[in-house]
């Protein structure tokens, strides 16, 4: 945790994007595609709700016909009709 804070501080001073230091990032495209970068794994998976663990929190995506299209150790691509995205600290 201390290392991450140091890295974030460094990124801030060097004007680098926060995700370079491992911060999570959510990109929603057109309301039917969500890309989660720097995740820490899935907590719950369903057609109407997907919970993703993040660094120091979790992301809850609500929608209908949600599907996990691609999953790697760093990225998650979710497709389906997105209604809400909740960030829980």
């Amino acid at each position: 945790m201390k290392n991450r804070k140091v890295a974030q501080e460094l990124c801030e001073r060097l004007d680098l994007p926060a995700e370079a230091a491992g911060a999570s990032k959510l990109t929603v495209t057109g309301g039917d595609q969500a890309l989660v970068e720097n995740h820490r794994g899935l907590l719950e998976y369903g057609e109407e709700l997907i919970r993703v663990r993040l660094d120091g929190g979790e992301l809850v995506l609500r929608g209908s016909k949600l599907r996990l299209t691609v999953m790697t150790d760093r990225e998650l691509l979710i497709r389906g009709r997105l209604f809400a995205a909740e960030w829980e600290g």
Binding site: G41, L42, T72
Partner: peptide, 27 residues
């Protein structure tokens, strides 16, 4: 928690697709 397997697959680099949630304990 079947999601744990998805996380393990992602970590190990096992490519998977067509993930379908049958119920809370089945994928």
């Amino acid at each position: 928690q079947p999601e744990a397997l998805l996380n393990a697959c992602a970590a190990e680099g096992v490519p998977f697709s067509d993930v379908l949630s049958v119920d809370a304990w089945t994928l």
